[in-house]
Write a protein that binds this DNA or RNA. Structure first.
Length: 725
DNA sequence: TACGGAAGTC
DNA sequence: GACTTCCGTA
């Protein structure tokens, strides 16, 4: 069936063995395709065509059938098969030739890379058979593999390009065997297998035959892979021994290697006739099939096994990484000791431009970012090398999941930002923070954002919405200094809505707690408040609060100006009671209602009576006053009496006018009494108490002016004391 | 005809 | 993992 000439691709037998299919125990579709391509008998079904590596499926159904037979999938059809082929797109093993029906193209580079990772792709410059279509037309030069790109140069794949004569007969045989695995006979046979061996012969054949395959040109057979001289291979893998297909007909020295070397699978990693000795099994087959890239292969020193190292670990990168890490650590506020291990690393100064952005960021956020930034930064730095390697990695997809984008890469910047400024500012704000917490704990409403100047709320929203860093940064920056404080304060004060406003003062936690309970400064106008005010008023408030207590009503009444008043009152005026009244005031007010007194004090000392005095029984308008008035009247009376007495005395000394005096006295008293009585409703004339009082005082009538004066004072004192009555 | 997602099989 | 099977879409 096959003419010697058709001995085409030098597919090493291992390529057809299940083991040869990485990740699969069964033959892979691409293997199968190659098989078919290599067999003349199937040329009507599938054949090389067009560009290098390009083939066309002439009879899709038949191919599918064959494939199905091979896989024992009778249901196989071209649709399914093509689906399988399409999966190769992603793997870059295969791609579709657009515009041509049923035409696909192998990416041999991929295949080679996968199967020959150990090959140093970078060096050779020598010519290799170009990917010629199935039909080699001419001399080896024609097939220069990497026409221009050195990178492509060495891929042995080139061999694949020449479908025709590249395969060793042995390989073919084996291949066929594989094809027929499940087949009922449709597929190829074992005849070949039986025929077997004779690799050398095969070579000879091939050489003689002048190249199988359609083109029949032997030209490419002569092509030697610069790097892959069997000698080299032997050297590498130990042994000059030449497995069947690998020794050149010409002799050891030549770099010309026979067909096999040219084939994409010059060396079989697997034990066996095809050169099993050369490679340790794990090498090629173990590697993933996924080709590196559809693009020309770019030498990757890092990957090249020849170089002996898979990763380049650049000290510089490491350094950067560590620095980044440092930064992150710093941001976290971690102990610098962490860096002790890296004495050589300069820890970035935490200096922040203007706005301390970091300041406000939640520790957590910062931590995250910093960490991410640090780590990522580190990763990033590593990446170059890794990326490099990845670049060559067979798997395009997996290789660069996030080629460029390191979301966190800015995090690095963040990390770089020196936190120092911010932290301090932050510290300036403890009150707000504590308060927030307290608020949170207390039932006070968390959200007063509406009222807030907006810095607070805005910041929050922004934070959530945007990158936290930005939002925070803005907040902080804007808020920096007083701004920060104001913002926080506003937030705090914001309770306005219905919440009791708590003026919290940072003085101490304990105090604050107390305040929380007591302070209900409700209804303040947030707007009116200042931070300063808060700060400085707070103490007053506290004091006041202590006195105020939970008396909501009182506060409410004050609402409009409560704060202001309080501020002023508390602050400016520790309640300046009327000069003379101080003692009284103190004693009474302190114990009495809290806030009332303050305003009262300012306005009128006298008025308190109103409130305090119970409504008079009489119900007359003056009723309230009656009680108080009498005192005054009494006093007045007293006073007048004294004077009169004195005068009368002087006069009386001479005369006795006594009765008149009494009368007058009565008159006056009446007047007073009236007033009093009006209030009390007790009748005009006399008010018993006054009389009594008077009486007591009056007794010493004959007294001197001095005495009267003293009495006067005393009475005043008494009156004051009794004022409440 | 080709593509690719989704789910399933081995 | 490498398909296989189905299917919707272009």
């Amino acid at each position: 069936m096959k003419t010697p000439g058709d001995s085409g691709f030098a597919f090493p037998e291992w390529a057809y063995k299940p083991e040869s299919s990485p990740g699969s125990r069964q033959i892979q579709l691409w293997h199968f395709i190659l098989e078919l391509l290599r067999k003349e008998e199937y040329h009507d079904v599938i054949a090389w065509q067009g560009d290098y590596g390009e083939f066309v499926i002439k009879d899709p159904d038949e191919v599918a059938r064959l494939w199905g037979a091979r896989k024992c999938k009778p249901q196989m059809n071209y649709d399914k098969l093509s689906r399988a082929l399409r999966y190769y797109y992603n793997k870059r093993i295969l791609h579709k030739t657009k515009g041509k029906r049923f035409t696909y193209k192998f990416n041999f580079n991929k295949l080679v890379l996968v199967n020959y990772p150990f090959i140093d792709m970078g060096s050779s410059g020598s010519s290799v058979p170009q990917s010629a279509p199935p039909v080699p037309t001419g001399a080896g030069t024609h097939f220069r593999f990497p026409p221009s790109t050195p990178s492509e140069v060495l891929s042995p794949n080139e061999d694949l390009r020449s479908p025709g004569g590249m395969f060793s007969s042995v390989a073919r045989r084996i291949g066929r065997g594989s094809v027929s695995d499940c087949s009922d006979g449709t597929s190829v046979n074992s005849e070949v297998e039986e025929g077997n061996t004779g690799v050398g012969e095969e070579r000879g054949e091939r050489g003689v035959s002048g190249g199988g395959g359609p083109g029949g040109g032997g030209g490419y057979r002569s092509i030697i892979h610069p790097r892959l001289s069997h000698e080299t291979l032997f050297r590498m893998y130990g042994g000059p021994g030449n497995p069947a297909g690998h020794h050149g007909s010409r002799g050891p020295t030549g770099h010309r290697i026979h067909q096999e070397p040219l084939s994409p699978f010059p060396v079989s990693p697997l034990p066996g006739p095809g050169g099993a000795n050369l490679l340790a099994p794990p090498l090629s087959p173990a590697l993933s099939m996924t080709p590196t890239s559809h693009l020309p292969y770019t030498p990757s020193p890092t990957l090249s096994p020849m170089l002996g190292s898979h990763f380049s670990f650049n000290p510089e990168d490491m350094k950067r990484y560590l620095q980044a890490h440092t930064q992150s650590v710093y941001n976290y506020g971690l102990s610098p000791r962490a860096f002790l291990q890296y004495p050589n690393i300069v820890i970035p100064q935490p200096h922040r431009p203007a706005a301390d952005k970091a300041a406000e960021r939640g520790a957590a956020e910062r931590a995250e970012r910093a960490a991410a930034g640090g780590e990522r930064g580190g990763d990033r730095h590593h990446h170059p090398s890794l990326a490099h390697s990845a670049h060559h990695h067979p798997r395009p997809h997996s290789a660069h999941p996030h080629p460029h984008s390191h979301p966190m890469h800015h995090s690095l910047h963040l990390g770089e930002e020196p936190p120092h400024m911010s932290p301090f500012k932050f510290k300036l704000q403890p009150p707000p923070l504590g308060r927030k917490q307290r608020e949170g704990q207390s039932q006070s409403k968390p959200r007063q954002s509406s009222l807030s100047s907006g810095s607070g709320s805005g910041s929050m929203s922004s934070t959530s919405g945007l990158g936290s860093s930005l939002s925070f940064g803005s907040d902080l920056s804007s808020a920096s200094g007083s701004g920060v404080i104001s913002a926080s304060s506003s937030t705090q004060s914001l309770n306005s809505a219905g919440l009791p406003k708590i003026k919290v003062e940072p003085i101490s936690d304990i105090e604050s707690e107390e305040e929380v309970e007591v302070t209900d400064i409700s209804d303040e106008d947030p707007d009116e408040r200042d931070e300063e005010f808060q700060l400085f008023s707070s103490r007053h408030l506290r004091a006041a609060e202590h006195h105020h207590l939970a008396n909501g009503s009182a506060t409410n009444q004050h609402q409009p100006h409560a704060d202001e008043d309080l501020d002023e009152d508390v602050f400016k005026a520790p309640a300046p009671p009327p000069p003379g009244l101080m003692p009284f005031f103190t004693s009474q007010h302190i114990h009495s209602n809290a806030l009332r007194p303050l305003p009262t004090l300012k306005s009128e000392p006298v008025e308190p009576g109103e409130s305090t005095t119970p409504p008079s029984q009489t119900g007359s308008a003056g009723a309230t006053q009656t009680k108080c008035i009498p005192l005054k009247l009494r006093f007045k009376r007293r006073w007048s009496e004294d004077q009169r007495m004195e005068a009368s005395q002087e006069e009386s000394d001479d005369k006795k006018v006594r009765p008149e005096e009494d009368r007058e006295r009565g008159r006056q008293s009446n007047g007073c009494t009236e007033m009093e009585e009006d209030g009390t409703g007790s009748g005009e004339g006399d008010s018993p108490p006054p009389l009594t009082y008077e009486g007591s005082l009056a007794t010493p009538l004959p007294s001197h002016r001095r005495v009267s004066a003293e009495l006067h004072r005393a009475t005043a004192q008494l009156s004051l004391e009794n004022k409440d009555c």
